[in-house]
Amino acid sequence: MAPVILRFRHVGNRGPALDVPKYETPGAAGMDLRADEAVTLAPGERRLVPTGLAVEIPPGFEGQVRPRSGLALRHGVGMVNAPGTIDSDYRGEVGVLLVNHGQAPVAFARGDRIAQLVIAPVVRAEIALADALSDSGRGGGGFGSTGHQ
């Protein structure tokens, strides 16, 4: 399989350019995204935190911006729209929509790791309008309809 090439560009003017994301271990699925400005989130507050980077993702792939488990465990910080999607044709600055679910303010310094970026293939569906859908064992059952656990 040919490697997927990501091209990053520095777009923030908030200080010296931060390092581009990289995989920290050979088995890492994601690469860390860093805050390009200092931010303090009050309990219950959400904020779009800039990364200072734009990325070019090849067609047929997407960038999935995911929360960091350590921030969730230690501080109750997550993402409002997890995972966030970066489409292959988006060229603007990548931002991370953080939320503080914890009981205390959480401060991030410029350069702190705030999220992960995972690159994944995208399958585009052909859309068809139908008069009926095929039967399934589940049918129209929704939330909680497949069990009681």
Score class of each variant (00 low, 15 high):
residue 1 M to R: 12
residue 4 V to I: 13
residue 5 I to A: 11
residue 5 I to V: 14
residue 6 L to E: 08
residue 6 L to H: 09
residue 7 R to D: 08
residue 8 F to V: 05
residue 8 F to A: 08
residue 9 R to P: 00
residue 10 H to R: 13
residue 12 G to E: 07
residue 13 N to E: 15
residue 13 N to P: 00
residue 15 G to A: 04
residue 15 G to M: 00
residue 16 P to T: 14
residue 16 P to A: 15
residue 16 P to N: 15
residue 16 P to Y: 11
residue 17 A to G: 10
residue 18 L to V: 01
residue 23 Y to W: 08
residue 23 Y to R: 14
residue 23 Y to E: 03
residue 23 Y to N: 07
residue 23 Y to M: 07
residue 25 T to E: 08
residue 25 T to S: 09
residue 26 P to C: 07
residue 26 P to N: 12
residue 26 P to D: 12
residue 28 A to H: 13
residue 29 A to R: 07
residue 32 D to M: 05
residue 33 L to Y: 10
residue 35 A to M: 02
residue 36 D to N: 12
residue 36 D to W: 02
residue 37 E to R: 09
residue 37 E to L: 11
residue 37 E to H: 04
residue 38 A to M: 00
residue 38 A to P: 09
residue 39 V to M: 02
residue 40 T to F: 07
residue 41 L to C: 11
residue 41 L to E: 00
residue 42 A to Q: 14
residue 43 P to H: 06
residue 45 E to K: 08
residue 46 R to Y: 07
residue 46 R to E: 12
residue 48 L to A: 15
residue 48 L to Q: 13
residue 49 V to W: 04
residue 51 T to Y: 07
residue 52 G to T: 06
residue 53 L to Y: 06
residue 53 L to E: 02
residue 54 A to H: 04
residue 54 A to E: 02
residue 55 V to D: 05
residue 56 E to S: 14
residue 57 I to M: 03
residue 57 I to T: 06
residue 60 G to K: 04
residue 60 G to N: 08
residue 61 F to Q: 11
residue 62 E to P: 05
residue 63 G to N: 12
residue 63 G to F: 04
residue 64 Q to N: 10
residue 65 V to T: 03
residue 65 V to F: 05
residue 66 R to Y: 13
residue 69 S to K: 02
residue 69 S to A: 04
residue 71 L to R: 01
residue 73 L to N: 13
residue 73 L to P: 00
residue 74 R to Q: 12
residue 76 G to I: 00
residue 76 G to E: 08
residue 77 V to S: 06
residue 79 M to T: 02
residue 80 V to K: 00
residue 81 N to D: 07
residue 83 P to Y: 03
residue 85 T to K: 05
residue 85 T to W: 00
residue 85 T to R: 06
residue 87 D to N: 13
residue 87 D to R: 08
residue 91 R to S: 14
residue 91 R to Y: 10
residue 92 G to S: 11
residue 92 G to C: 10
residue 93 E to I: 09
residue 95 G to R: 11
residue 96 V to Y: 01
residue 96 V to H: 07
residue 97 L to W: 04
residue 98 L to Y: 05
residue 98 L to D: 03
residue 99 V to D: 00
residue 99 V to Q: 08
residue 100 N to T: 03
residue 101 H to N: 03
residue 101 H to Y: 14
residue 102 G to K: 01
residue 102 G to N: 01
residue 103 Q to G: 09
residue 103 Q to T: 12
residue 106 V to L: 01
residue 106 V to S: 03
residue 107 A to F: 05
residue 108 F to P: 02
residue 108 F to L: 01
residue 111 G to D: 03
residue 115 A to K: 01
residue 115 A to G: 07
residue 116 Q to H: 13
residue 119 I to D: 10
residue 119 I to E: 10
residue 123 V to F: 06
residue 124 R to H: 15
residue 124 R to W: 07
residue 127 I to W: 14
residue 131 D to E: 15
residue 132 A to H: 14
residue 133 L to I: 13
residue 134 S to G: 14
residue 134 S to R: 12
residue 134 S to T: 15
residue 136 S to P: 10
residue 138 R to K: 12
residue 140 G to M: 06
residue 140 G to K: 04
residue 141 G to A: 15
residue 142 G to T: 03
residue 143 F to C: 02
residue 144 G to Y: 00
residue 145 S to W: 09
residue 145 S to E: 08
residue 147 G to C: 10
residue 149 Q to D: 15
